[in-house]
Design a protein around this nucleic acid. Sequence first.
DNA 1: GTTTAGCAGTCGAACGAGTCGAGTGCCAGC
DNA 2: GCTGGCACTCGACTCGTTCGACTGCTAAAC
Lengths: 343, 343
Amino acid sequence: MVSERGLEVLRVIVQDYVESREPVGSKSIVDRYGFGVSPATIRNDMAALEEDGLIAAPHTSSGRIPTDKGYRMFVDHLAEIRPMTPAQRHAIQTFLGEGADLDDVLGRTVRMLSQLTNQVALVQVPVLPRSRVRHVEMVRLSPTRLLVVLITDNGHVDQRTVEVPHESAPLDDESLADLRARLNTLLVGRLLAETPPLLAELGDTVPPGSRAVLQRVTDVIGAQVDDRRQDRLVMAGAANLARTEKDFPGSILPVLEAIEEQVVLLRLFSEMELDSRGVSVSIGRENGSLGLGEASILAGGYRSPAGALGHIGVLGPTRMDYSGNIAAVRAVARYLSKLLGDD
Amino acid sequence: MVSERGLEVLRVIVQDYVESREPVGSKSIVDRYGFGVSPATIRNDMAALEEDGLIAAPHTSSGRIPTDKGYRMFVDHLAEIRPMTPAQRHAIQTFLGEGADLDDVLGRTVRMLSQLTNQVALVQVPVLPRSRVRHVEMVRLSPTRLLVVLITDNGHVDQRTVEVPHESAPLDDESLADLRARLNTLLVGRLLAETPPLLAELGDTVPPGSRAVLQRVTDVIGAQVDDRRQDRLVMAGAANLARTEKDFPGSILPVLEAIEEQVVLLRLFSEMELDSRGVSVSIGRENGSLGLGEASILAGGYRSPAGALGHIGVLGPTRMDYSGNIAAVRAVARYLSKLLGDD
DNA sequence: GTTTAGCAGTCGAACGAGTCGAGTGCCAGC
DNA sequence: GCTGGCACTCGACTCGTTCGACTGCTAAAC
């Protein structure tokens, strides 16, 4: 049974270990934090903590370090979120200030977050199904190639070139304009998810010459709806991983691999439930993947009035500054929501 | 003076060292490559090579390793480009096969190249000044916000949201359509670089109510012309750096930092002249930057009929397989050119 | 002139022994 | 429940030794 003071001891062990990367011993605890008891007493508490699997000793005779379970306890019950300093708030605001296109904003956000936390920062590019069509544009690049641009109301622009089948008559400007007008009339304001059936209907009403083209456009939009392209991650701060190399016993290789893989991280993001503070934490082995057993992931959600849009988070060694990083993720997520939401 | 055989010796030293990461000694050379002479003779050659600064001994009594200058000699005069295997060619072709939008193609290309070489791969997003305007589109997102989309003939789509000043009258659909028509008439087919003066002229002819909007659009296009956004790099294979960690004596940190910095790499790319084989090499200290003193960069150019578009390359430790990697860069650059050029 | 054998010398890598010190677990007493 | 004391453990560090892979040099051989 872990006592009240036992939890305090756990807290200082986590804090100390995060700060120094040294296993922390009973004597150094009383030296630095003066609990008003002797080292021997602390040792008893530590024995209880170890019994509960909250801390462990790397080898028989050395201080203790937190286990994944210990970090979990710390994060859930012991950590106080350290609010951002005014300077940091200001930095976020000015750095993210100027609105530009979506990719730009996400890129700057993720760089900001990685600097703030000294970790790898990740942001998920918004999922699209909930967004609405603003405009469909088609530009002929050559007699057989067409650039289809789909603009949605969350500021996303998707572009693809499509090949127009040779067997169909080359498309003239007029019928292209006609098709563009029909498409826009039909689709603008609709949810992306609603479009496929509408497009199918439209198929019967257009002149035969345009059918093939319409088919391609339909494909593009359909691809948008369920394509995994929407599940993309933007990343920054990989160099920070090398900086915390010491915290990954084997090597940072599997971590870098997991990051490039993306799939693993996207799954983790999607599985994480945001807690009351709006930031969720997955610690060490909790995140399943073999390569990430020594890493923790913090995830926050950002949203616009249109609904939840995506996750933003940081990845670092389990031995990280949870208090500060949770605050940073939360703050950046909020600013990002504000930035995207004020339209 | 380095003899004919001396150069052969250099070649095998490079090959051996790249393969094994062990300094190579005179005895192992005759054992493995049997020059028909004794180790002592090889030693004399090695002394000459050392005199010329082509190889060096890490410590008094150990084998030799190539210096930057030695690698340079190897690359310029001794390396034979090992052609891609049919399997590799096939992989490139099928992997890059399906044309989609530009970002997509570049992303897949760079991943392909990093897998082929086991190094970090980089591709420079095409520079725009030489491209021509295909279409300008404006979409109103809200009474005071406008999404401006600029489509160019190399398949690039740029998008920005702009704030329309409140003092101007809210823009109605009609004048927006009018402005769109004017802009397209004026700009389509022009080089991006030509547009700013044309836009300045146009300013006088539009109705006063649209001036403010036009100003913003002008800004967006102007930003396109000289913005550094166009100098973007897409990267893949950072995990490969960790794999070759041993080759970076200090740490891979400065290398990762240089990669994230991008500026350094872009400068290097722009300074490198493509040689006759279409691939240029910058070795170790040659590339100036402090962090990249242990790295080599191979760069190839890819182009479309419209002219040189950008660079593609790989970055790895100086101790890398130059023959194979040069071939890979060249092959991928060619396929990329073909992919982008057949419009 | 080039090549070779022989030999002394150098220096890192690997190994083992010994020391040091931080830290623990346990127990008896307050 | 807390504390002081004590024996014990075990990694980190240092030092000295050995081992082996090379080299450079010199004098003789081709």
